[in-house]
Computed example of a mutant assay.
Amino acid sequence: MTTTATPDTRRNASPYLYGEEAAAVARVLEAGQYGHTDVTEEFERRIAEFLGVRDVVAVMSGTAALHTALLAAEVGSGHEVVVPSMTFCATIQAILAVGATPVFVDVDPATLCVTDQLVMDAVSDSTRAVIPVLFGGRAIDFSRVRKKLAARQIAIVEDAAHAFGSRNGARRVGATGDLTCFSFGPIKNLTCGQGGIVVPRSFAEASMIRRLRMLGVAQSQTERAHTTSYSVEGFGLRYQMSGINAAIGLAQLDHFDKVETTRRRLWHAYRRALVGLDGVTLVDVDPDRSVPHLCQVLIPHRDEVHAHMKARGIGVGVHYPPNHLQPAFTEWRRELPATEQVGAQVLTLPFHQHLTEADVGQVVTVLGQSLKTVGAASCARS
């Protein structure tokens, strides 16, 4: 049977807008101030309230969040940072940006996340931070090892780029007491167009990250408006979030209950539809506690199935090619058997709020047809 793809299964994930974002941006444009503004500070207050934390610091991207969080944790030259290879390369680049060395670790194939034991096995006397990546939106419980890491002055810096809104037990991710970094890029659970935040562990860290994001300047924008000078107190970068991006995020935040409901419903729809496919393993994102960001399967003949589904108009992808196999990171390559196995099998299915449950059924139908076609061709060659 031939299936014609709909536009929503054909296209890759795109931002889901609620209709108020353009007006919110227009108000900022009309005000004439496009940098860090009171809109940015309102966004920080609203996000902190949503997460149930005292403070957050808004920056221009998730990568900037990771970079400044590592600096706030005093990670630098001579230090090691334990990190899964199965993540976007931005995580690794942030480590290199502070002069530290990445120590790649394996993942649990069922979740594509690290475990506390995998991390502790890689910790050394040179370790200054560990970065659990909350893959697909799934929280990672480090409660058993948090005190051990703290006793060795090792910071936990959560890469929660996929996990805004997810829960770790009763609390939102970000409220567990660790340095936590979120991304609000174009296709994240909540988008600012571009942006990120850091949840600091202390007032001192919050102050440091605020200086870092504004070229080392100690005074806030409001304070600088009432003085003839300002104080540059150290290294800094232009990492602040603009009021334009914050306005988009505020408009999005008002509808986050819909994000949670829709993403969980679509993920569960995939799980039901995939039950009948042999040889397909659904990566578990713990959907009842997470706000799923991705829906992924592990399959045989991944590259061929990917090409077959693309040819049929289905917007599949791969998240991510393992970093320890990348040319830029060859110096730190090590054997990671689970990561290498899932790296060759993982396929990301279309997953965004434009989808319907009928679209999900169509994707799974084409996946089943592709597996049969590719499998038959493989048998014929052997």
Rank of each mutant, 00 (worst) to 15 (best):
A5S: 15
A5I: 09
A5Q: 06
G19K: 07
E30K: 15
G32H: 11
D38L: 10
T40I: 11
E42W: 04
R46A: 14
F50C: 01
R54T: 10
R54Q: 12
R54N: 10
R54P: 01
M60D: 15
M60Q: 13
A64F: 07
A72Q: 04
H79K: 06
I95N: 00
I95L: 03
V103S: 11
V107E: 00
D108Q: 11
A110G: 13
A110Y: 05
A110H: 13
L118Q: 02
M120C: 07
M120H: 04
V123T: 12
S124Y: 02
S124V: 05
S126C: 10
A139M: 07
I140P: 00
D141A: 07
S143F: 06
R146D: 02
R146N: 02
L149S: 02
A151K: 11
Q153A: 13
D159R: 11
G165H: 01
R167G: 09
N168S: 15
N168K: 12
G169M: 08
R171D: 12
R171Y: 08
R172F: 07
G177V: 11
S183L: 01
S183H: 03
F184D: 02
P186V: 11
T191H: 04
G195R: 04
M208N: 05
R210N: 12
L212F: 14
V217E: 09
V217Y: 01
Q219W: 10
S229V: 07
Y230E: 12
S231E: 13
V232S: 12
V232E: 14
N245F: 08
A247V: 07
I248M: 15
G249P: 03
L250V: 04
Q252H: 10
H255G: 06
D257I: 05
H268M: 08
V280A: 09
L282R: 04
P287V: 08
R289F: 09
P292A: 03
P292F: 00
V297I: 15
I299C: 05
E304K: 11
V305M: 03
H306K: 11
H308L: 14
H308V: 10
H308I: 01
M309S: 01
I314E: 00
P322I: 02
L325R: 14
Q326V: 09
F329H: 10
R334K: 14
E335Y: 12
E335P: 09
T339S: 15
V346I: 15
T348E: 13
P350I: 05
P350H: 09
Q353V: 03
Q362E: 11
Q369Y: 04
S370R: 02
K372F: 00
T373H: 12
V374Q: 09
G375E: 05
A376F: 05
A377S: 10
A380S: 12
A380I: 06
